[in-house]
Design a protein around this nucleic acid. Sequence first.
DNA 1: AGCCTTTTCAACCAGATGGTTGACAACCCT
DNA 2: AGGGTTGTCAACCATCTGGTTGAAAAGGCT
Lengths: 119, 119
Amino acid sequence: MADDRLSRVFAALADPTRRDIVARLSVGDATVGQLAEPYDVSVQAVSKHLKVLADAGLVTRSRDAQRRPCHLEAEVFDLMTKWIERYRQQAEERFRRLDAVLADMDSQDAPNHQQGAAS
Amino acid sequence: MADDRLSRVFAALADPTRRDIVARLSVGDATVGQLAEPYDVSVQAVSKHLKVLADAGLVTRSRDAQRRPCHLEAEVFDLMTKWIERYRQQAEERFRRLDAVLADMDSQDAPNHQQGAAS
DNA sequence: AGCCTTTTCAACCAGATGGTTGACAACCCT
DNA sequence: AGGGTTGTCAACCATCTGGTTGAAAAGGCT
């Protein structure tokens, strides 16, 4: 489903376990085993979570003997932040305009009525 | 699954159709029918999408006769932004420290400026 | 009242998701 | 070479998801 980048990033972070993994990786790299240790699920399940995070580009894995250290790729956050900020600002801009309209109506409810721009 | 607030918000935005709905609502309120019009799916499907967005707190619906105008609640974005910024900054802080360590090592075993640390 | 519009509810279906267990690949250490 | 560690692959299962269709609720218009 929805295999574009942004969708994968949001979907990856929709799971609390995966968000917790991201939180822990923000402190420092860790292996699959280390990441799995605190959770009450199998190592395989955590391995799957890491695949989801990797497919979303949030995590990269390198190699150290049998171990696969996981590393957080923080730049991907920008993708989300940009999307969020874009529409938040658009919404705020709209509120600003609405406020202006209300203020305008308020200031001239007595004089004459008109529609459209001018001034 | 994962019914906490943040999970619902991320999950809601993991769908491209729902992100598009949010984008359009950032321009102005709209009814279910208006929102459904551009998409190639049934009105019922869009109604479901709006329920998901509403459950996540991203959208509120009021009443206007049979119509249910939908309104974007932009404050919820803050929840995501806070989470994202927290771990992005933590990761960046870590890089800063790593840079400091590398610089320190560099200055200790190579007093003259040579990049590409050895040994 | 009767009809049309707008939206939701209910049942259903195919495919994704998160979990499990078992096997095995890859790699270290004697 | 053999045994322990670390991680992934494969098959399976229950549940969630996004879509469908059909029916019905809620309300306006003649």
